[in-house]
Amino acid sequence: MKNELIFNSDLHFEHKQWRRELFFWEDELRSFKNRLEELVNRWTDKKMLAQLEHYQNQFLLQAEAINKLEDEINIHEHNISESSKKGYDILDTLFVKKHIEFRNHMETQRNIYHNLKGEFFRFLTEFMIIKNPIKKR
């Protein structure tokens, strides 16, 4: 098995990609929350309001998860910076292992977010189009 070197710049590049992805999720969540507020003002049906509350809670959980991921990236970036200041451009095995674990964590969160988003859009389709409270003429 060939040993490959992993450089600080490689990890930094991946961190930048993750930050962009997290920023996009944050932006989407803001628009989802705005949509929920519109719907809460339009609906009085208890079942519908319960569903809206469910999504509101899920979006809050996602926002918390995003904040934690951003914090972890910042810590990892700090460690890379400290390593670079000491003149080390190649990371040790433990540090790379933590990075790989974080990569797996990002992938898991990506799947959770993707599934929630799909579920929310299916909900909107079902309740907003099929059961729209505004009568057609």
Rank of each mutant, 00 (worst) to 15 (best):
Met1Lys: 11
Asn3Thr: 13
Asn3Ala: 14
Asn3Asp: 12
Glu4Trp: 13
Glu4Tyr: 14
Glu4Gln: 10
Ile6Thr: 06
Phe7Thr: 06
Phe7Leu: 08
Phe7Ala: 06
Asn8Lys: 13
Asn8Asp: 13
Ser9Gln: 12
Asp10Thr: 07
Asp10Pro: 01
His12Thr: 15
His15Leu: 03
His15Arg: 01
Lys16Gly: 01
Trp18Met: 03
Arg20Gly: 14
Glu21Ser: 15
Glu21Gln: 15
Leu22Glu: 02
Phe23Ala: 15
Phe24Val: 01
Trp25Glu: 04
Trp25Val: 02
Trp25Asp: 03
Glu26Trp: 00
Glu26Cys: 01
Glu26Pro: 01
Asp27Ile: 00
Glu28Met: 08
Arg30Thr: 04
Phe32Ala: 00
Asn34Gln: 07
Arg35Tyr: 03
Leu36Ala: 04
Leu36Ile: 07
Glu37His: 06
Glu38Asp: 12
Arg42Lys: 15
Arg42Asp: 11
Trp43Ala: 06
Asp45Arg: 05
Asp45Pro: 02
Lys47Cys: 02
Lys47Tyr: 06
Met48Arg: 12
Leu49Gln: 09
Gln51Tyr: 08
Gln51Ser: 13
Glu53Thr: 09
His54Ile: 04
Tyr55Ile: 01
Gln56Asp: 13
Asn57Pro: 02
Asn57Thr: 05
Asn57Phe: 09
Gln58Ser: 07
Gln58Ala: 07
Gln58His: 04
Phe59Tyr: 05
Leu60Val: 05
Asn67Gly: 03
Lys68His: 07
Leu69Gly: 02
Ile73Ser: 00
Asn74Lys: 14
Asn74Cys: 08
Ile75Leu: 15
Ile75Asp: 13
Ile75Asn: 14
Ile75Thr: 11
His76Ile: 00
Glu77Cys: 03
His78Phe: 14
His78Ala: 13
His78Leu: 15
Asn79Thr: 02
Asn79Gln: 14
Asn79Cys: 10
Ile80Gly: 04
Ser81Cys: 05
Glu82Arg: 08
Glu82Gln: 07
Glu82Thr: 05
Ser83Gln: 08
Ser83His: 04
Ser83Met: 04
Ser84Val: 10
Lys85Tyr: 06
Lys85Trp: 06
Lys86Glu: 12
Gly87Lys: 06
Gly87Ala: 08
Asp89Asn: 12
Ile90Pro: 05
Leu91Thr: 01
Leu91Met: 12
Leu91Glu: 05
Asp92His: 12
Leu94Gln: 13
Leu94Met: 12
Val96Arg: 03
Lys98Pro: 00
His99Leu: 00
Arg103His: 09
Met106Phe: 06
Met106Asp: 02
Met106Gln: 04
Glu107Leu: 11
Thr108His: 14
Thr108Ala: 14
Arg110Pro: 01
Asn111Glu: 11
His114Val: 01
Asn115Gln: 12
Lys117Glu: 08
Gly118Asn: 13
Gly118Met: 11
Phe120Arg: 02
Phe123Thr: 03
Phe123Lys: 04
Thr125Gln: 15
Thr125Lys: 14
Thr125Ile: 09
Thr125Tyr: 15
Glu126Ser: 10
Phe127Arg: 06
Ile129Lys: 11
Ile129Tyr: 13
Ile130Ser: 13
Ile130Trp: 05
Lys131Glu: 15
Pro133Ser: 11
